[in-house]
Design a protein around this nucleic acid. Structure first.
Length: 899
RNA sequence: GGGCGAUUAGCUCAGCCGGCCAGAGCACCCGCCUUACACGCGGGCUGUCGCAGGUUCGAAUCCUGCAUCGCCCACCA
């Protein structure tokens, strides 16, 4: 072997170096490789948690983005893939809180300033990790423009947006019932609450009437809240209870008297029909309370323990209290028993703790006006979802959306730019820190201690990263962005809110297309997650290593990013979930190795058959010295079209597959095998084969590049070194995406090839039919026109299939089977090769199936409806097939008589 | 309670704006270390296209109903 290249592709030895050269050469910079006249193409990365680590979901998400960006960059668009990270308020804060707790301290002991210092330190320490992992993936982001949601610029954008919304009357402060997480002690937005079906009890409690005339039974899932009951509601139409309205009952243990009120909320068909009303701890009850002016009594504190309202249970955890209260109420005969039920309980999507409904004062965004415009953009097609069905989900959510609670009682995040005046009590909202109250000019003002929901800053991401609110050149050039690639899990959190804020503040959509990809699942079909231990570490798959997966350890030698990317692309079909296992990535690894070796084969031959320069379209056309060459180049045009169309439609698997089919089946299996003959023949033939191969291989490297960037770049550099010349310069990643070359198309080529392949199939069928052992060659003869001779040569040496002799007007040799391919007859002499008596049996079977097939077709053609309604083409096809089968049957019969 | 998705070869999935005898990869079987690749080559086996109806000359593909699994939404005391 003239070239000292390893037989097996070692991605781990190649990828880091290739990436380094791209990055230092400025290949990732916005606009790199852009050609005049092409519009911009922009993707804003879904910013990962700054302190997070790359998981398979990120790998998928970013592979899809990188594939699009690389493809568009090659097409000559002015591309920008805007990278960055998110401060992830609650998630990051709780990690640091845990760290501090392990040191035996609390957040509050540390104080706000010192705590924030700690978080920043943690961010600095771990913040680079995920960004470096993205590099391992091959992500071609413009790292020079990396942003963080708490950068100065982005923080200013947050303040500007807050002020604009406030000034427009769309941000307000209000006392409302919100979702409260007792673990993190903060309010949460509605969509930050996950409802989980839990087994629970429905307890029956007996409340005695004040006048001793009896009692009323209420049912509840939360008996511990009875301390906060301020009424019992019954339906005003309910005959059972109508007469009790206005009377009072006495609460157990504490003896407080509460009224029985009539309210529509009480459903006579549910439970006992009477319901306890706890306005401070239930959203429904809160509404009932408002209607009847009932007092709010908070019995569960913000930390999840009972307040002093709960008598001697004060200080107990809410769940411990439930048990204790039940025990005590049962002993005193108030608790009349319980039934098992299933009900959904809200949990914090961050801390997983059961949330409490709490009445607090918070900041809200009024959503209706914002939502309406966001819906319009989608309905009118300016923002398009792929797959389309997500537009419905998105629209539905926006239609029913409730106001967004944006204040969080944590420290890590954008502090709310509102100052409360100690003198007049009003708020001053300002972009730059306020010094005096704008209402009464008092200097006695204090900034709100809360921070904003993380999603508030994420909502500005596509434009805050480009410099908004300044009118920067980047804003002019790269906004609106083009495609957003994300997970269905954050359509509400993120996608919808980006559209809303963008329409509000810029009067423009933030992106044109939203591609929603599937969720990464393990091999059993469960969502991958740290806690379940079923995640596959992308870095282990890329660089190698050992990890635990589904309770077992597995070791990966390091398949490389290309291998992983290819597998992910191959599995990405129209937003379907991806069921992965470590072995799945062998698909990509094997294909990468195939590409590598085909490259080696070409380089080896080029060293013996050097090309003066990379072949141009014209030169490769001149090198078409036979049908195989004509076919390969024609096929290349089709493959080019297929890849382009697939990417335009976000059909990643079609793209991966289209490139794969051409590469493996057509280029390697057919043409490379054929080229070996050309190289052996030497001279002009060898030169032509080298030209064709070098050209086709180079084109397909371009087609593969968006999916497998490292390997293709590496091979391209080798190819370039070997062929030099003016055409192949610089980096593959900045070369032009192939366009179909009309001059290399020859109409009818595919059909001609299909006919040849049909001969192969026909011969194989006969071989199987007669039970010919593998490895036994037959010399089939084709009875057809002269011009087939050259074509059929192409079939020769396709493995140990057969040797084909092409004889125009050949007569049937004795003891041979004849098979019919279109207008051709293929004679396969079997004399001495097989037991002819067995062949007879097989042929009789074949005779039967043919007879059956023929009668079926005759039936169809005898059907007047079919002839009248089916397209003429279809009918003609059926007729042709019928004729072919008849001819074959005749041959089979003839053969039978000769055997 | 509502919505969405899935159900095709042993496994993972394509195909589904109706008609090219239902496809790929993996697994399996047979034959090959053929001088690019055994992470390979050549060949082969495997499917009542979830069930029941309907529309149509013709349905995996359209319609209706059902079943199973999964996801999302929803203030089910």
């Amino acid at each position: 072997m003239p070239l000292d290249l390893p037989k097996a592709y070692d991605a781990t030895a190649v990828e880091p170096d290739v990436y380094q050269r791209w990055e230092t050469s400025g290949c990732f910079k916005a606009g790199a490789g852009a050609r005049p006249g092409k519009p911009s193409y922009v993707i804003a990365i879904p910013p990962p948690n700054v302190t997070g680590v790359l998981h398979m979901g990120h790998a998928l998400n970013n592979t899809l983005q990188d594939t699009l960006i690389r493809w568009r960059r090659m097409q000559g668009h002015d591309t920008l893939w805007q990278p960055g990270t998110d401060h992830a308020g609650i998630a990051t804060e709780s990690v640091v809180v845990k760290q501090i707790q392990e040191e035996g301290k609390t957040r509050d002991e540390l104080g706000r300033e010192a705590f924030l210092k700690r978080v920043w330190a943690w961010k600095e320490q771990s913040g680079g990790k995920i960004v470096h992992q993205l590099r391992k993936l091959g992500a071609s982001c413009d790292w020079s423009r990396e942003r963080f949601t708490m950068d100065a610029g982005l923080s200013r954008a947050v303040r500007v947006m807050f002020k604009r919304l406030f000034d427009a009357g769309l941000i307000y402060r209000g006392t409302r019932m919100v979702n409260w997480c007792p673990v993190q002690q903060t309010a949460l937005a509605d969509d930050e609450v996950e409802h989980i079906e839990k087994n629970g009890h429905l307890w029956k409690l007996r409340y005695d009437l004040e006048d001793g005339s009896g009692s009323i039974v209420v049912e509840t899932t939360r008996p511990e809240t009875f301390f906060g009951d301020t009424a019992v509601a019954v339906n005003p139409e309910d005959e059972r209870y109508k007469h009790l309205i206005g009377k009072r009952v006495r609460l157990p243990i504490i003896g407080r008297l509460i009224p029985i009120v009539g309210d529509e909320h009480a459903d006579p068909t549910k439970g006992s029909g009477a319901v306890k009303i706890t306005p401070a701890h239930d959203p429904n009850d809160y509404e009932v309370g408002k209607r009847h002016s009932l007092p709010l009594i908070q019995v569960i504190g913000f930390d999840g323990t009972m307040t002093t309202e709960a008598a001697h249970f004060a200080g107990q955890d809410r769940f411990a209290c439930r048990k204790a209260v039940c025990a005590e109420l049962e002993a005193s005969g108030v608790l009349l028993g319980s039934t098992q039920i299933q009900h959904s309980v809200g949990h914090s999507y961050r801390s997983n703790a059961p949330i409490e409904a709490m009445v607090t004062e918070q900041w809200f965004v009024q959503m209706k006006p914002l939502a309406e415009r966001a819906i319009t953009e989608t309905v009118e097609g300016r923002v398009q979802f792929h797959p389309e069905r997500w537009a419905k989900v998105y629209g539905q959510w926006l239609t029913d959306v409730r106001d967004w609670c944006i204040s969080r009682q944590i420290w890590w995040g954008h502090r709310i730019p509102a100052w409360k005046c100690g003198a007049c009590g009003k708020h001053t909202v300002a972009i730059d820190d306020a010094q005096t109250c704008q209402h009464c000019h008092s200097a006695d003002i204090v900034q709100d201690s809360d921070v904003l929901d993380t999603w508030f800053s994420s909502a500005l991401w596509p434009y805050s990263t480009l410099g908004w609110p300044e009118q920067t050149p980047e804003m002019a050039r790269y906004f609106p962005t083009s495609t957003l690639v994300t997970d269905r899990g954050i359509i509400f959190f993120w996608v919808a809110r980006m559209v809303m804020t963008s329409m509000f503040a810029l009067d423009q959509k933030p992106f044109s297309d939203v591609y929603i990809h599937g969720t990464v699942l393990d091999e059993r079909g469960d969502k991958m997650s740290k806690s379940k231990g079923n995640g596959i570490d992308p870095i282990v798959m890329i660089s190698g290593g050992t990890q635990k997966y589904l309770g077992k350890e597995f070791t990966c030698p390091g398949y490389g990013a290309d291998a992983m990317r290819y597998t992910l692309l191959d599995m990405t079909t129209e937003g379907q979930d991806l069921k992965l296992s470590p072995s799945k990535f062998e698909t990509g690894r094997n294909f990468a190795n195939k590409v590598w070796n085909a490259g080696r084969f070409l380089l080896m031959n080029l060293s013996e058959q050097p090309l003066a320069a990379p072949p141009s379209d014209e030169q490769v056309r001149a090198a078409i010295i036979g049908f195989p060459e004509q076919w390969l180049l024609d096929r290349l045009q089709t493959a080019t079209d297929e890849c382009t169309t697939a990417l335009e439609r976000f059909r990643y698997n079609d793209y991966a597959n289209g490139a794969y089919r051409f590469f493996r089946d057509d280029l390697c299996d057919w043409y490379v095998e054929w080229a070996k003959r050309r190289f052996k023949a030497g001279g002009e033939q060898a030169q032509a084969a080298a030209t064709i191969l070098a050209y086709a291989f180079e084109r397909v490297l371009r087609l593969l590049h968006p999916g497998m960037p490292f390997l293709t770049e590496h091979l391209w550099q080798h190819l370039q070194a070997q062929t030099g010349g003016a055409m192949w310069q610089g980096f593959l990643m900045l070369q032009a995406w192939p366009e179909p070359v009309a001059a290399l198309r020859v109409p009818g080529t595919a059909e001609r090839m299909a006919r040849l392949q049909a001969i192969v199939t026909a011969v194989r069928n006969v071989r199987n039919l007669v039970g010919l052992a593998d490895g036994v060659a037959v010399a089939a003869e084709i009875d057809g026109p002269d011009e087939l001779t050259a074509d059929a040569e192409f079939l020769t040496d396709r493995g140990n299939l057969s040797t084909l002799s092409i004889l125009a007007g050949a007569t049937k040799p004795p003891q041979s089977v004849t098979t019919v391919v279109g207008a051709l007859k293929v004679h396969i002499p079997l004399s001495g090769l097989v037991d002819l008596s067995k062949v007879k049996v097989q042929l009789s079977k074949r005779e039967q199936t043919l007879t059956k097939a023929i009668s079926g077709k005759e039936g169809r053609l005898g059907n007047a409806d079919y002839l009248a309604r089916a397209p003429a083409e279809q009918v003609a096809e059926t007729k042709a097939m019928l004729e072919a089968e008849r001819a074959e049957l005749a041959n089979v019969r003839e053969t039978l008589t000769t055997l």
